[in-house]
Every structure is written in C-alpha cells, then in structure tokens.
Nucleic acid binder design. Structure first.
Length: 178
DNA sequence: TCAGTGATTAGG
DNA sequence: CTAATCACTGAG
C-alpha cells in the first residue's frame, strides 16, 4: 500500500454526515513505537451529530470528556467504556458544533474496541490533531467508496427517532477514483 | 446469553 | 459521597 496524501482541515470541518461516509476507503496511518508506519483501510464508521442527537455524548452538555467535540474538525475524541475499551472518534464540523465519527472498523479489524487495541491507541490520543500529528493521521487512498448505510449500534438509550437514523456506514467495496 | 471492568455523570 | 450507566467483547 503506497502512502497517500494526508487529509487537511477542510475535509474534517464539514458536516459529520459528509465526513463519516467519506472516511470509508481512506487510510488510517499510525506511527508505531519502532518508527514504522502502519496503514489500515477504514471500513466502518458512525456519525454522532450535535447536541440534539440523543445518541451523541455532547447531548449531555459540554463536559471535560466531550470538550474536544466542540472544536473544529480533525481532532480525536477518545473515551473509555465498559471498563475495558477505548473508542476512537474523529471530530467533524465547525467549532462550537459537537460532531464526531466513530471508527468502528478497519480492514481485517472489525469492532471499535478491537481497532484501538490492535493499534495501541488509548486516552493519550485525546485531542490529537490529525492534520498536524506526527503519530496518527488519515490519507486519501485515491479510491471511491461504495457504501451501505444503516442504523447505529448500541444506542438503545437514545430513543426510537435517533436510533433509527441511518448514520452507520459500511464499506462494501472500492471503485476507481472519478 | 452474560459477566467483566472502571471512567463519567447525575444527584444528595 | 453514592450509584447507575455505558457508542463493547469474548467466553460458554
């Protein structure tokens, strides 16, 4: 897999309903401790959109944990859940609009908890900026994703309306760039 | 199907 | 301070 061009601020600073699906087929690059760069194709994401979205953590308000979601897109939102797993999210949208895309799966790594475990990503990545970071970023792959959308997973607490939004995106296959 | 595991949050 | 909750996973 040859390195692609790093995505810039403009990509992330848009509505999460554009950013989350467009992350599919892009490359998540992580610099390991040994100095090597590991690259993974993003295959599954979910959009969490604003204070009104009852499934979005920011619907509870601006707290220490959710603070980063109120920044301009491109930063990382990490949180710890069920006492065991770090969840990796990419902040989207303009400043003051809390949105994020959960990275649920990579090629050959399905499940948000497995993603962070496999890549060694933890709370120290909270707030990291994908546009400037030396240890994690996203690259264009030069391909176009073909996507299936469906309801988000694990948000029974959010009520029927938000639970039924088709904001989970899965990569079916990649097509040549237009 | 269900226990594990601990940060976060709301409430007193 | 207490207690409930949780954007999950692996074992059975």
């Amino acid at each position: 897999m040859s390195p692609g061009k790093r995505l810039e601020r403009e990509f992330y600073a848009r509505d999460v309903l554009d950013v989350a699906p467009e992350l599919l087929s892009k490359i998540l690059a992580v610099r390991t401790i040994g100095g090597e760069t590991a690259r993974f194709i993003i295959t599954e994401t979910e959009a969490y959109r604003g204070a009104e979205d009852l499934a979005c953590h920011a619907s509870k308000g601006r707290t220490k944990r959710t603070e980063i979601m109120f920044h301009e897109g491109g930063r990382l939102y990490l949180y710890f859940v069920y006492g065991m797993y770090w969840m990796l999210n990419i902040v989207a949208g303009p400043a003051e609009v809390p949105q994020a895309a959960l990275i649920r799966g990579l090629r050959n790594i399905t499940g948000p908890g497995r993603v962070t475990k496999a890549l060694g990503i933890d709370g120290s990545f909270y707030g990291e900026d994908l546009v400037t970071s030396k240890r994690i970023w996203v690259e264009d792959s030069g391909t176009r994703p073909v996507i299936t959308a469906g309801p988000r997973i694990g948000i029974d607490y959010a009520g029927e309306y938000w639970k039924s939004r088709p904001w989970r995106y899965v990569l079916d296959f990649t097509a040549p760039a237009p």
